[in-house]
Amino acid sequence: MKRIALIDVRSFLAIILVGIVLVIAVGCSSDTSGEETGPEEIRLDYAYYSPTSLVLKKFGWAEEEFEEEGIEIEWALSQGSNKALEFLNSDSVDFGSTAGAAALISKSNGSPIQNVYIYSKPEWTALVTNPDSGIETVADLKGKKVAATIGTDPYIFLLRSLAAENIDPSEVEIINLQHGDGASSLASGQVDAWAGLDPHMARLEIEADAALFYRNADFNTYGFLNVRNEFAENYPDYVNRVIKVYEKARNWIIDNPEEAAELLAEEAEIDVEVAKIQLERNDFSNPIPGDVHVEALIESGVILQDGEVIDADANIEELTNELINPSFAEETIE
Rank of each mutant, 00 (worst) to 15 (best):
S185V: 00
D255F: 06
L212Q: 15
A268E: 13
D218T: 12
E205G: 07
N226C: 10
L279D: 09
S285I: 01
P199V: 01
R215E: 14
N176F: 01
S188I: 13
E267S: 11
E269H: 07
L177M: 07
Q278D: 09
P236A: 13
G290E: 09
V292F: 14
F284K: 03
R215K: 15
N282G: 13
P199Y: 06
E207P: 00
P287K: 04
Y214C: 00
Y246K: 05
L225D: 00
K276M: 03
L264M: 12
F224P: 02
N176A: 10
D291A: 05
P236T: 14
D283T: 02
T221N: 05
Y238P: 08
N234E: 12
V245N: 06
H293K: 09
I243D: 02
I277M: 06
L225M: 12
I254T: 09
E247R: 06
A208N: 02
M201L: 08
P257D: 06
R228A: 15
S185A: 13
S188A: 15
A202V: 00
A261H: 08
Y246W: 13
L186M: 09
F231S: 03
G189Y: 10
V292R: 15
V294S: 03
P289C: 06
L177P: 05
E258W: 00
V292T: 10
D237K: 05
E259I: 04
D218N: 12
V294I: 13
L177I: 02
K244G: 11
E262G: 13
E269A: 14
E207R: 14
D255K: 11
S184P: 11
H200W: 11
D271T: 01
G223V: 11
E259L: 01
A187L: 15
D283E: 04
D218G: 12
E280W: 14
D237L: 15
V242N: 09
F219L: 05
P287M: 02
L204Q: 04
P257F: 00
Y214K: 07
T221E: 02
N286V: 05
L177V: 04
F231V: 12
W194S: 03
G189R: 08
D255P: 15
V239P: 03
I253N: 02
A195I: 01
D255A: 13
G196A: 06
Q178T: 10
V274T: 10
V294R: 06
R215I: 09
W194M: 01
D198H: 09
A187S: 08
I270A: 15
N251A: 15
Y214L: 01
Q278N: 08
E259S: 04
E258G: 13
N251G: 14
F231L: 06
I288A: 11
R281L: 12
R281P: 11
D209M: 09
E247K: 07
A211I: 15
E233T: 15
H200A: 09
Q178L: 07
N220F: 02
P257M: 05
D218W: 00
P289D: 03
Y238W: 00
D271Q: 03
R215L: 00
R215S: 07
A261I: 02
W194F: 09
S285Y: 12
D237N: 12
A210W: 09
I270Q: 14
R281E: 13
R241K: 04
F284V: 05
V272H: 14
V239K: 08
W252H: 01
H293R: 11
A268V: 03
V239T: 14
E269Q: 11
G290Y: 03
